[in-house]
Simulated assay, not measured.
Amino acid sequence: MTLNLFSHAKLGSISLSNRIVMAPLTRNRAGEGGVPQPINVTYYEQRATAGLIITEATPISAMAHGYPLLPGIYTDAQVAGWKKITEAVHAKGGKIVLQIWHVGRISHPSLLPDNALPVAPSAIKPAGQAFTYQGLVDYVEPRALAADELPGIVADYVHATRSALDAGFDGVEIHAANGYLLDQFLRDGTNQRTDDYGGSFENRARLLMQVTEAVVAVAGADKVGVRLSPVNPFNDMKDSNPQALFNYVAESLNRFGLAYLHVVEGGIHGGGESEPFDFSAMRKLFKGGYIANLAYDKARGNAAIASGHADAVAYGVPFIANPDLVERFKADAPLNDADASTFYGGAEKGYTDYPFLKA
């Protein structure tokens, strides 16, 4: 039997009714104190027919924030807010994992406690501007983390994982992509350290491996995924040898027996052209489930699954505009167009008001 997007699947211990995954999508609509609101419950509940929902990236601590109106996962009120979301998704038969996140240098003092400097592997200022409550402002030079601070970062991931499980999530995805903290440690364009966390592939991947080991110890490997973006230049990212680096990372992650690896297969968010990369070669090195992401439509998604390249395919913008994307793919129905002006911030418009097929 040929597998396709509508085949059942299992990623670790997470059973999927189909292989159409909702990709993590930052929407900047959390309430005060980073607490999910009723509007967020509606948004996720509408999309519960996805085989798996991966939530918007969610900061693991007050120092992990990089944008306005993000939901967090480090206070009791935030956990209670997320619990309403997981209950609503589960009531509709869906599965949902929380993407846990530290932005590192992609922040601004105005977004951080006591106007603190953003932290990073090395004190290298990113090109571009931060999105703050005051509008767009130039990034600042971040502060390089001392080696003795890194166990505290790992502890924040552990606390976030425990909080996610308390909130009823089916698992967690470690965000190590798109130019944020763990990606900043991986790539030599942002990591120029000379200690045990810089230089060799092993050293640059050390923090990701320590975080993964600690998260797996709390949640169980069968409930943990990792997201990577080997050649995404977004957030002023680059590496001198991405193929060798990410082949090493994929192979090194095998030791944990993860539920899945989730890979952004190119450049996103207008980061510029990504360089050539053999995703099939990297995929062959990883022994667990593989979620492919980036510019897939139904036909490409089916082909990726039938060929064995992917076990599931993550869709981003199509899920913003089509809460019933699964049903539309099944019926070969036309898709709603997404309104990019409502992607970040706002209320119901462009968030929970996209029409369903049946409507």
Rank of each mutant, 00 (worst) to 15 (best):
M1W: 01
T2F: 09
H8S: 15
A9K: 08
G12E: 04
I14W: 01
N18P: 11
A23I: 00
G31H: 07
V35W: 14
P36C: 07
P36H: 09
N40E: 15
Y44F: 12
Q46L: 06
Q46V: 08
R47K: 07
A48R: 10
T49E: 15
T49Y: 01
A50H: 07
G51H: 06
G51C: 01
L52R: 08
T55S: 12
A62Q: 03
A62M: 03
A62L: 08
P68M: 12
L70E: 15
P71L: 01
D76K: 14
Q78C: 13
V79N: 09
K84G: 05
K84E: 06
I85W: 09
E87Q: 14
A88V: 06
V89Q: 12
H102I: 03
V103T: 12
G104C: 07
G104V: 03
R105Y: 02
I106Y: 06
P109H: 03
P113G: 15
P113Q: 12
D114R: 01
N115D: 13
V119A: 08
P126H: 13
A127P: 06
A127I: 02
Q129N: 13
T132I: 05
Y133I: 09
Q134T: 12
L136H: 12
L150D: 06
P151W: 00
V154E: 11
A160M: 03
L165S: 13
L165T: 13
A167K: 08
D170G: 11
D170T: 02
E173Y: 04
I174F: 04
I174H: 02
A176I: 03
A176W: 07
N178F: 00
Y180Q: 06
F185W: 02
T190E: 08
Q192D: 01
D195E: 04
E202L: 02
N203I: 00
R206I: 00
L207T: 08
M209T: 03
M209D: 00
V211Y: 05
E213I: 08
V215Y: 02
V215I: 08
V218M: 04
R227F: 00
V231W: 01
D236P: 14
K238D: 02
K238F: 05
D239G: 05
P242G: 13
A244S: 14
L245Q: 13
A250K: 13
S252C: 00
S252E: 03
L253R: 07
N254E: 07
R255S: 09
F256K: 09
G257F: 08
V263E: 10
H269T: 03
G271V: 00
S274L: 06
S274E: 08
E275T: 14
E275P: 15
R283Y: 05
K287S: 15
G289Q: 09
G289T: 07
Y296C: 14
A299V: 12
R300T: 14
G301M: 06
S307R: 04
A310M: 02
D311S: 09
Y315S: 14
G316P: 04
G316D: 07
P318R: 03
I320F: 07
A321F: 00
N322R: 00
P323S: 09
L325N: 15
E327G: 08
K330F: 06
L335I: 05
N336C: 10
S341Q: 04
T342P: 05
G346H: 10
G346K: 11
A347F: 10
K349Q: 13
T352W: 12
D353A: 06
D353I: 05
